[in-house]
Structure formats: structure tokens, C-alpha cells
Computed example of a mutant assay.
Amino acid sequence: MTTTNLKRWGIPAAAALIAAAISLYYYAELPEMMAVHFGPSDEPDRYMNKAFGAFLMPVIMLFVTAVTNASAKLERDESKRRRFEGVNDTVNVVVVVLLLAVHLLTVGFNLGYAIRISLFVPLAVGLVFIAVGNVLPRAPQGTLRAFRMKEEYYAKYVRIQGRFMVVAGFLMVLSTLLPGEAGMYFMFFVIAALLISVIGGASYFAKR
């Protein structure tokens, strides 16, 4: 298997298989109604029958991988499509590893282990932002992009947004040092600020 195929399907498939195997191994010990979603205070606020909750995440892993891989096929320009696929391959690996970690924590919580979800979420999302921010400048301007820019402005825009994402990721990681639920709320604030910069920056460079 080539490195490309390993990133594109090998690692996601392996992660989904590991998640499913863990659920099968502990299936008898899991509660009939599994906690699958948590509020900022670490209290579960959504439950699901374990027949679905134990195996939902492996399905999501494969679905996200399929959608990510298919999205690059929509690009009509061959050279841009290859660049998109390279970026998507890295994003695939980062996302499925994150989803595997979420699955492990969810199973652990439902088995009775004391797990602080509010500590994990900002840390995990921050690491994803750092990883994606580093590869974002390699992504070409897609044919279907909503905000069209001149190529030199697009290159500047993705460099800036990539740096913003990395900084936002580090801030989220550091937010785990905040007490109580503060880290989760700070993460939401950072994401909101980043979304404003993404939309505002795209609008600004598209008009130049």
C-alpha cells in the first residue's frame, strides 16, 4: 500500500476497526443507554441505546473519510485536484485519530472511569487546529469557492488563516489550564473569533 492510500483509506479503516473491536470487547459491560454527548460541566446530556452508541463512531469515521475523499473529486482542475487530495489526506488522518480518541473516552466514561471531557475537548480541538493550520497554505483555491480571489491574494489569505489557526490551536491547548468550565467557554470564544476572521478575510481579499 502506498503512503497516499495509507492516509486516504488505510489509517481511517484501521481506526474504525480498532474502535469497533473495542466496543465489541466491552459490549456486555456497557450500560443499555450510553452517554454520547456532554455539556461543559462534564455531565452527559444525551444518551443512545448501546446497540447504536457503541458502533456509531466507527461508522462516522468511514463516512467522514468518504466525504473528504469525494470532495476533492469535485475539483475540475487536475493540478488543483491533486493538491486538494494531498491536503485532504493529512486532514483525514488528523480527524479519524481525533474521532478514535473521542470513542475511547466515551467508552471509558460509560464503563465508569472518571474522565474530564471538558479537559479533553479543548486539547483535542486545539491540536486539530494546529495540524490543519500547518497544511492549509498548501490548499489551492477551488473552482467552487464562494469568495473568488486573485491567486496572489488567495495565497496571502490562506497563509494568514493558517497562522491564525495555529495560534488559535495553541490558545485552546493552553485553555486546559483554566479552572472548571472556563476552558470550554474560552474554546468557543476562540472558534467564534476565528470564524469571523475567515469570513472577514475572505470578503476583504475577494474585493481587492
Rank of each mutant, 00 (worst) to 15 (best):
V107D: 04
V107E: 03
F109K: 15
F109Q: 06
N110Y: 10
N110I: 07
L111D: 08
L111V: 02
L111P: 02
G112N: 11
G112K: 11
G112D: 09
A114H: 11
A114T: 12
A114I: 06
A114S: 14
I115R: 15
I115C: 12
R116E: 15
R116K: 13
I117M: 15
S118K: 02
V121S: 04
L123M: 15
L123V: 13
L123N: 07
A124V: 03
G126K: 10
V128P: 01
V128N: 01
V128C: 14
F129P: 01
F129H: 08
F129Q: 03
A131V: 05
A131G: 06
A131Y: 07
V132T: 05
V132F: 04
G133V: 07
G133M: 05
G133S: 06
N134Y: 04
N134T: 05
V135E: 03
V135P: 02
V135M: 04
L136I: 02
R138Q: 07
R138I: 02
P140A: 02
P140M: 06
P140Y: 06
Q141G: 05
Q141K: 11
G142T: 10
T143Y: 12
T143Q: 12
T143G: 04
L144Y: 14
L144A: 11
L144H: 14
A146P: 15
F147K: 07
F147M: 10
R148H: 14
R148E: 08
M149E: 11
M149G: 09
K150C: 01
K150G: 01
E151G: 01
E151W: 01
E151H: 02
E152D: 15
E152Y: 12
Y153P: 00
Y153F: 13
A155G: 04
A155Q: 14
A155Y: 07
A155R: 15
K156T: 07
Y157V: 06
Y157Q: 11
V158L: 11
R159T: 13
R159L: 14
R159F: 07
R159W: 08
I160D: 06
I160E: 09
Q161I: 15
Q161Y: 11
Q161C: 08
G162W: 12
G162C: 12
R163I: 09
R163G: 10
R163D: 02
R163H: 04
F164T: 07
F164R: 13
F164S: 09
M165D: 05
V166Y: 05
V166R: 10
V167C: 03
A168H: 05
F170M: 14
F170Y: 15
F170Q: 08
M172K: 13
M172A: 12
V173K: 09
V173I: 15
L174Y: 06
L174A: 15
L174P: 04
S175E: 01
S175W: 10
S175C: 08
S175Q: 03
L177T: 09
L178N: 05
L178C: 05
L178W: 03
L178A: 10
P179H: 03
P179M: 05
P179N: 03
P179W: 04
P179D: 02
G180A: 02
G180P: 09
G180R: 02
E181S: 08
A182P: 00
A182G: 00
G183R: 01
M184F: 14
M184L: 03
Y185M: 00
M187W: 00
